[in-house]
Each structure stands twice: as structure tokens, then as C-alpha cells.
Design a protein around this nucleic acid. Structure first.
Lengths: 184, 184
DNA sequence: ACCTGAACACCGTTCAAGT
DNA sequence: ACCTGAACACCGTTCAAGT
């Protein structure tokens, strides 16, 4: 890659980071190009689709989620709830991210597939540990948990819920993952 | 209202019904006007905002939900689950509806507020009956249930989930609304 | 090889001109 | 009183022309 191309790519990514933070994943790509000081064609050359751009932005985001997952305690039920809370908070960093991630599941060749899969696997590791620690009483389908968490995140974003309301919803979901019959 | 105005209003609503069915609640208003055979200004005169138009479309939708709520059995746990399933299926009739409804909660003077409140109340009646029938073991906050159901609906829409997957998610939520400690 | 920016199609919204 | 449609600003996307 030529030197100016490399520089432009970096400028576009930095501009996108700012614009996505301000306007969410559905922000204007025109504004991204303007902020980066490049023509719209240059943006399209580097990132043919919006998802190509977003997936690049999510690389560090996914790393953060994975690091969190592998560092989190799973001794108490509340530990798992805290993990889910942090997951939703992270999803809310960028408006529209939860929705974009959810849509990934129905788009076989989305550039975000790897990011989605990484989150499902990280969450799966947390729940596996919680299961073996006896905190969660049955193995769970991590993909389904992520679907539920994504739903909570989208609901929270649209309704502008505060953390306490989000926590309450996640608590209900987590209770639901521990079916009553397992307690008898 | 003048006769031609009344006719145009009806034509716009019928056109909107078709366009929203095809393209969801975020469909092009230009296309609605074109389909109705009126100028864009006429649409804006009758419905100043997109939500004004949608809320009008939802009048019969809300009636259906209310009628369903008041006719539904609440004798068995599965009855309540079926009710939630039908609610999600109804939300999915129009793409974007769940999201629009969720956003209503953070918009104090949205024209959709009445529709949202009616759904919360209808759901509340179902859960009240289920509670008194001993099917649900604790009173629930219907607003919170609707937030969860809306989240499931958004997740289902984005990820294009099939009914079995939706039912499984709703089952988890409904289990979560019946906390294990209530079973001891 | 890469960039630019004009060009096109589309959309939401407003408003002067009509009837 | 209501309607029309031109006009404006904005956006995504493409591509011929440049370097």
C-alpha cells in the first residue's frame, strides 16, 4: 500500500471513531470523509461497506470484551450479572451497535461475523465457568444469551433506560437461565 | 374538513399501510405520498411527523392487542407464554415497530404514547389474571415485561430468528419473571 | 495506484404559488 | 382551506478525470 493511502486509511478510521461516537453506527459516511479530509470515493475504496468500517473500529472493542470475560470472577451469581451489565454498557458505547451486532447473525458474510462470534465465545467461557462453579445450574446456549442481552441493550438504548432498569432486566434474564425445576 | 382533504387523508393512510407493510416504520414518506397520489406537502399537512402517521396506523393494531389480551386464557403457564409469542408476532407485522414503540418511552410527547400505554395495560391485565390464577408467582411490572418483550422482538427482527427461537427466548424471560426463591 | 470531486438518485422538509 | 410541486439541504454511491 502506498504511503498516502496508508495515511488516509488511518485518518478515515480516526474520523470514523469520532463520528460513530457522536452519531452511532448509522452516522453519515459523508461526514466521516469530510472529517478525515478525503473525498467520498477514497472512503469507499478503503471501506466498501459501512460494516467494513465498523468492523475495523470494533477490533479493540472486541479485545476489551474478551479481556473482561477472561478476567471476570464467576464465584457468585452477582458476578455473572455484573458481567452481563458490563456487556450491555459496552454495547451502548456506540449507538446502534447492539442492533448492528444482532443483524450480523442473519448476514452470512458480514464483516462483523468474527466480532459477533468472538463475543458469543467470550460469553460462553464466562457461563461455562459459572456452570462449573455451580452458580448457573444448567449449561446455556451462549448464542441465545447474547441474543437476549442484545435485546436488552436495544431496548435500553431506545427507551433511554438508566443502569438500574437495565440491571433489573438482566436480572430477570439471568434468573430465567436458571430454571426453577433445576432447584427442586 | 373539506371533502377533498378528507379523501386525501384516507388515501394517504391506505398508502402508508401498504408502504409500512413493505418497508417498515422507517419507509420513505415520499413513496407514501407518491402512492397516495398527493404532493409531499399534503402528507405533511395531514401528518406533521412520521409518528403521527404511524400512530394512526396503529389504532386497529392496538385494538387487536387489547382484544387478544382480554380473550386469552391464563390458566396454564404456557397460556402466558403463548400470549407473549402472539405479542412478538404482532410487533413483527411491521418492521421497525418494536423499536419505534420502545423509543416512545423516552419521548414524553410522542403521538405513540397512548398506543404504548395501552399495550402495557393490556399485558398488565393478562399478568394480573395469571398471578391470581397462581400461574405467575409474583406480581410483575408490566412496563418492564414489555421492555423485555420489545427487546426480544427487536433481536428477532434483526437476527431474523424463527418462531422456535423466539419462543425459547420468551420462555427464558417468563421463567425469569418467576424467581426460583418463590418456589421454595 | 490512488485520489478527487462532480454527478446521479434519493429523501425529508418547507413554502410560494395556485385553486 | 387545501393542494401542488419546485426548491433546498443532505446522503450514499459511482466513476471519469487527474496525479
Amino acid at each position: 500500500m502506498r504511503a498516502d493511502a496508508l495515511k488516509n486509511r488511518a485518518r478515515i478510521l480516526e474520523a470514523a471513531r469520532v463520528e460513530v461516537e457522536l452519531g452511532g453506527t448509522e452516522c453519515s459516511l459523508d461526514n466521516v470523509a469530510k472529517r478525515a479530509g478525503v473525498g467520498p470515493g477514497t472512503l469507499y475504496r478503503h471501506f466498501p461497506t459501512r460494516e467494513d468500517l465498523i468492523s475495523e473500529l470494533l477490533l479493540t472493542w472486541v479485545s476489551d470484551v474478551e479481556a473482561d470475560a477472561d478476567a471476570t470472577a464467576t464465584d457468585r451469581w452477582d458476578d455473572v450479572l455484573d458481567w452481563l451489565m458490563r456487556l450491555v454498557e459496552r454495547a451502548r458505547l456506540y449507538r446502534g451497535l447492539a442492533s448492528t451486532m444482532a443483524a450480523t447473525e442473519s448476514d452470512e458474510d458480514s464483516p462483523l461475523r468474527a466480532a459477533h462470534a468472538a463475543v458469543v465465545e467470550a460469553n460462553g467461557r464466562v457461563f461455562d465457568r459459572a456452570f462449573h462453579a455451580g452458580v448457573v445450574v444448567a449449561p446455556v446456549d451462549s448464542g441465545e444469551v447474547i441474543r437476549l442481552v442484545t435485546g436488552v441493550a436495544m431496548s435500553a438504548e431506545q427507551a433511554k433506560l438508566d443502569p438500574a432498569q437495565v440491571r433489573s432486566m438482566l436480572s430477570i434474564v439471568l434468573h430465567g437461565l436458571t430454571p426453577p425445576h433445576a432447584h427442586s
